Simulated assay, not measured.
Amino acid sequence: MNAMTMPDSSSATAAPAYFSVRDIHAYYGESYIVQGVSFDVAEGDVVALLGRNGAGKTSTLRTLARAADPELKRGEIWLNGQAIHKLKDFQAARHGIQLVQEDRRIIPGLTVEENLQLARIAEPKGWPLEQIYEHFPRLAERRKQEGVTLSGGEQQMLAVARALARDIKLLLLDEPYEGLAPVIVKEIERIVHEIKGRGITTIIVEQNAVAALELANRALILDMGQIAFDGPANAVLENAELRTQYLAI
């Protein structure tokens, strides 16, 4: 079965995509991890980036955010007409790319509110605290509590809220449901649905592929560092053979 569905890039008159990834190749030392990945994302899309363990999902996400590793050795990344591939991670963040990593990176010694205020100092054009607390009532209740003492699910909420406190154009979520109780997963899903409703372009890496696909309108499946499928999320949900071949579900 040929599962690959790729966008038509033949038209010279087509408008450039809001977020465009062109033939990126990235390495951890000598290990060739991301092997020529290309795709386009329209503004407001929610994309599920899926694949088996070791397929290169997190590495691709980190490359898009311009993290120090893996090292991008070839290819281009464009966001709203801006060349991101030439930037470092903090510069990409200033251009609106916000990565919420699996380990959350909550700053020790700071309260919930101080974590959020620090994000807003760096990028004051993001969501104000009142708006954040409206959408994250658990954080409002715990605003004076040290961030690292929150539960895992609450820390995930804080990590997402901190991204929204900055000037956000593209949200990258790495395993947002990992290790969370089902009731907290539902709360995180609610928050991500609200983000989707506000038209924030999002790429989500998640081992719970069904949950990610039900949230997304697009799906990208990686296999051995390359795109194996690019198409509608519901096409993956409806195709058992495709899910078995690439996702083992």
Rank of each mutant, 00 (worst) to 15 (best):
R62I: 10
K86C: 11
D40L: 08
S31M: 12
E76W: 06
N80D: 13
A67C: 15
V34A: 03
P70L: 13
I24K: 04
D40W: 10
H85S: 15
V46H: 03
A26D: 07
E76A: 11
A26R: 07
G96V: 11
I77Q: 00
S31Q: 09
V41S: 01
Q35I: 05
H25V: 00
A93F: 14
Q91R: 15
H95C: 13
I97P: 01
I24N: 01
R52E: 10
G51V: 02
G96C: 10
Y28I: 01
L87C: 10
R94M: 12
A83G: 12
A26E: 05
W78V: 11
Q101V: 09
G75L: 09
I84Q: 07
V47T: 05
Y32R: 13
V34Y: 03
K57C: 07
S59Y: 09
H85N: 15
K57A: 07
G75K: 07
T58Q: 12
S59G: 11
D69G: 13
I84K: 09
H95F: 10
L99E: 05
G36S: 01
L87H: 10
G81P: 08
D40T: 06
V34K: 03
A42F: 06
L50Q: 06
A26W: 07
R66P: 02
R22D: 08
G29F: 08
F90A: 15
A68E: 14
A67E: 13
F39A: 03
R104V: 08
G29W: 11
A65D: 04
I106P: 05
G51C: 12
D45M: 13
V46Q: 05
A48K: 00
R52N: 12
D69T: 15
I97L: 09
L87F: 12
A65V: 04
S31N: 12
R94K: 14
A48H: 01
W78P: 00
A42L: 09
D89W: 14
F39G: 00
R94L: 11
A65S: 13
N53E: 14
L50P: 01
G44I: 05
D69L: 14
R105Y: 15
V37P: 00
A92T: 13
R105H: 15
A93E: 11
S59A: 15
L64Q: 01
K86M: 11
A65W: 03
G51Q: 06
H85Q: 15
V41M: 04
V47M: 09
R62P: 03
V37E: 01
Q82K: 14
V34S: 02
G81A: 10
S31T: 12
H25P: 00
A42M: 02
L87W: 09
G51S: 11
G29S: 06
E76Q: 14
I84H: 07
H85W: 12
A65I: 07
G36L: 03
L87A: 10
G56I: 00
Y28C: 04
A65H: 03
G56K: 03
R22P: 05
P70S: 08
D23E: 05
T63K: 07
V100P: 05
G36Y: 03
L50H: 06
I24H: 04
G51M: 08
D103K: 13
K86G: 09
Q91G: 13
A83C: 14
S31F: 12
G51E: 02
T60K: 08
S38T: 04
G75D: 06
F39V: 02
F39Y: 07
G51H: 05
I33K: 04
G54V: 02
D23T: 04
